[in-house]
């Protein structure tokens, strides 16, 4: 099985499309960090001007932690596309090039192949998140130093102590990984049903967009339904930057997200192991 996962990872590593996500993240992180380096202080002064009327804000607000948070906030929304780009291609890509015939006539069970692909897709997803976090925090610290994190919520400003920042970022990235794993499993599921990789990628993004729109609609009838949409829970990583931690909400979201992952994997696996390879 490890051999199989290794092969799958090697294939992902060698695919040019794998690096689109990493490159896109690097460019955006650099642009945002350098922009803040140029005039972030003025921008923050503007944001905080109402508070500065009453208070002296002591301490370095513009620091690596804030930069990392701002970038995570901006980019995690776009991450599903980057994940779908690779996960949606995992099986359908093999079907479109015909290599699925070669793959499935090898002495590995379909279940092994399926889970090797899922693990490889998850490793990619994790690497992408780690890259985003490390780059945003690394460049942020290099340019702005460390310090307490000022979380700018729309209705509240939360200051997270510097000593708490590390574990919160780690937990948030782990949570983001769980959220994006839903996208990985969803794309993989669609990938099992398609013989070309464009369909699962486009379908994944379409579903995410539709669910996000439904989630944003303030219609009473949809309220109960909203809590079942995985997109509603994909932003749960942010809760690690609230004080105190809304543990109940975090746990319930994790359960719902894991439920989605399991459901998508069961459907995908069931179809994959029974599928006749006709193309």
């Amino acid at each position: 099985m490890l051999n199989l996962i290794g092969i799958e990872l090697y294939k992902i590593l060698k695919k040019p499309r794998t690096y689109i996500g990493f490159a896109a993240i690097a460019i955006i992180v650099l642009v945002v960090e350098l922009s803040f380096y140029a005039d972030g202080k003025q921008y923050l002064d503007f944001v905080l001007q109402s508070l500065r009327q009453h208070f002296v804000i002591q301490g370095e607000i513009l620091n690596g932690s804030l930069m990392c948070f701002v970038i995570l906030q901006m980019l995690i929304v776009q991450m599903p596309l980057l994940v779908a780009l690779v996960a949606g291609d995992l099986i359908s890509g093999e079907a479109s090039t015909g290599t699925v015939r070669m793959l499935l006539s090898k002495p590995y069970t379909r279940s092994q192949i399926f889970f090797a692909k899922y693990v490889a897709g998850s490793v990619y997803t994790f690497a992408l998140i780690l890259w985003l976090g490390a780059l945003a925090l690394g460049i942020g610290i290099a340019l702005f130093g460390t310090g307490d994190l000022l979380v700018l919520k729309s209705d509240e400003l939360v200051v997270i102590k510097a000593e708490d920042v590390w574990w919160r970022f780690s937990a948030a990235l782990l949570m983001a990984f769980v959220s994006l794993s839903v996208v990985t499993s969803f794309s993989l599921m669609l990938s099992c049903f398609s013989d070309n990789s464009i369909t699962p990628i486009v379908a994944t993004m379409s579903v995410i967009i539709i669910f996000t729109i439904i989630g944003a609609l303030e219609i009473p009838m949809l309220e109960k339904f909203k809590s079942l949409l995985f997109t509603t829970h994909m932003v749960i990583w942010r809760n690690f930057f609230d004080n105190p931690l809304p543990m109940r909400q975090i746990v319930s979201s994790v359960v719902i997200l894991l439920g989605h992952i399991v459901l998508f994997l069961i459907i995908a696996h069931r179809h994959f192991v029974r599928k006749d390879i006709l193309n």
Partner: peptide
Amino acid sequence: IEKPDFYLY
């Protein structure tokens, strides 16, 4: 089967 298949990349 049908034609040899490869990872073209």
